[in-house]
Amino acid sequence: MEKMLILKGKGIIPGLGEGRALVSSQSISFWGDLEPETGMIISRRHELFGKNITGKILVFPYGKGSSSGCGILLEAIRCRKAPAAIINLNTEPILALGPIVAEELYGKSLPIIILPEKSFNLLKTDDYLIVDSAKEEVKKSLE
């Protein structure tokens, strides 16, 4: 088995997700930044403009702005265009609500974990990551 670096964090929404990282240093407001039917970042003011978050491990420091972010994230989950997991420095309740309601309505989840800043800063776009938020850890491939 290939070598993996294990980063310990705090699980917010339990679950397992793996894939390539898409890292943003900017905060994200899903409403206004994301088109939930396609998974595209549509805000021209955002550094991820034009990128697709579907199936990615989306890494960004925290949410911001509109209180409608959870609705858009829920819709992305419904449309199967959500990221495979989210890694934050701090997950605000508005962000966590999308996945919580998704569990109620669709029996589907979206794992979220928070990492301390030192570990968070190690993550780069295209890193291969395994998020296990129930075990409160992120595995980073050292390929």
Partner: peptide, 12 residues
Amino acid sequence: CYPTVREAGLEF
């Protein structure tokens, strides 16, 4: 507000 919650929010 429909466009902020879309189909999922309507279902909810």
